[in-house]
């Protein structure tokens, strides 16, 4: 009888151990840009609207939105959200103040976990001087 009890406890302990050690699956993030469309043009002084959504198959760990002037390499806008959520909606504005017409790269980096796994999406458009 004791053997049955000990065996049952041992199996239960091993099960708990393995369950506890099982690593959560890294979620998959889907990044969608609603605005702008690829290769859209933004006139000098106008606002560039960057609008879209991020949806995950599980909990995501934040995201960063950046806009880079590809001609100069300068990051002209960056914003980071660190709150955990299954989904995000972003809608930010950047006013075109370039001194020479330049290609812009809009990039969204999503933190999938705290191990450094990320999901990214980029979109290019043009800022006109």
């Amino acid at each position: 009888m004791k053997q049955i009890i000990y065996s049952t406890l041992a199996v239960a302990a091993i099960s708990i151990l393995f369950t506890a050690c099982k690593k959560e699956e890294t979620p998959i993030a889907t990044i969608t840009f609603n605005e702008p469309l690829a290769n859209d043009t933004v006139l000098q002084g106008d606002s560039l609207h960057v609008e879209g959504t991020i949806t995950g198959t599980g909990e995501l760990h934040g995201y960063t939105l950046s806009i880079t002037n590809k001609s100069t390499g300068a990051v002209v806008y960056t914003g980071t959200a660190s709150n955990h959520s299954d989904s995000y909606a972003f809608h930010e504005h950047w006013i075109n103040n370039v001194t020479a017409t330049a290609a812009l790269e809009i990039k969204v980096d999503v933190e999938l976990d705290h191990d450094g796994n990320k999901s990214s999406k980029t979109l290019n458009c043009v800022a006109v001087q």
Binding site: A89, F90, H91
Partner: peptide, 9 residues
Amino acid sequence: SYFEGIKHS
């Protein structure tokens, strides 16, 4: 406010 059903602001 919500954007496509996701809390935005």
